[in-house]
Simulated scan of single mutants.
Amino acid sequence: MQNEIKNIIFDWGNVIIDVSMNNFTEACQMAGIKFTDEEVNSTHKAGFFLAFEIGEISEDEFRNEIRKRATTSLTDIEIDTIWNKILGQTPKEKLELLYSLSSQYDLYLLSNTNAIHWNAFSKNSFICNGTNMINSFKGIYLSYQLHCAKPSPEIFRKTIEIAKIKACETLFIDDSSKNCEAAQALGMRVHNYIPGSDLKNSILGEIEKK
Rank of each mutant, 00 (worst) to 15 (best):
K45T: 08
E56M: 04
H191G: 10
F156Q: 04
T90F: 06
F24K: 03
N135E: 12
E206S: 14
G32K: 08
T113N: 02
N23G: 04
I160S: 01
E206V: 15
I9T: 04
L146P: 05
L95S: 07
T170A: 03
A183R: 02
F10L: 04
T131M: 07
T36P: 00
L204W: 13
F121K: 14
L74I: 04
D37E: 14
C148Y: 12
I86N: 04
T159L: 09
A167V: 12
E4Q: 11
E78V: 11
T90Y: 05
H117N: 12
Y105S: 03
L204R: 15
E78F: 01
E154R: 14
E154K: 15
E56R: 02
G55I: 09
N114R: 02
Y144M: 04
T25F: 06
N179T: 11
K94F: 05
I79A: 02
N201F: 02
K68M: 07
W118C: 08
E53S: 15
N22F: 13
K92I: 15
I116E: 04
I86L: 14
L204S: 06
L87Y: 12
I17Q: 12
L87W: 09
E61L: 08
F121R: 07
A120Q: 07
S42I: 08
N135H: 11
D37I: 01
N124W: 12
E38V: 13
C128A: 04
I77G: 13
N129H: 13
Q104Y: 07
I173C: 02
D18A: 06
A46S: 11
S111A: 15
M1I: 11
D76V: 15
W12K: 11
K85I: 07
I17P: 05
I16D: 03
D106Q: 13
E78Q: 10
H147Y: 03
L98M: 06
Q29Y: 02
C28S: 11
S111F: 07
E53Q: 15
T81F: 10
T72M: 14
N114S: 02
G88C: 14
I82M: 01
T75N: 03
A185C: 02
H44V: 15
L107T: 02
A182Y: 07
I207L: 10
A46R: 05
L171A: 12
D106R: 06
N23C: 04
R69W: 08
E161Y: 10
S42M: 07
E56V: 02
P151S: 08
K6W: 09
D37W: 06
Q145I: 03
E208I: 05
N192G: 00
F172E: 09
L142T: 06
L107G: 00
L50Q: 05
H44F: 11
V190C: 13
G47F: 00
M1N: 09
I207H: 08
T81D: 14
C180F: 07
N84H: 05
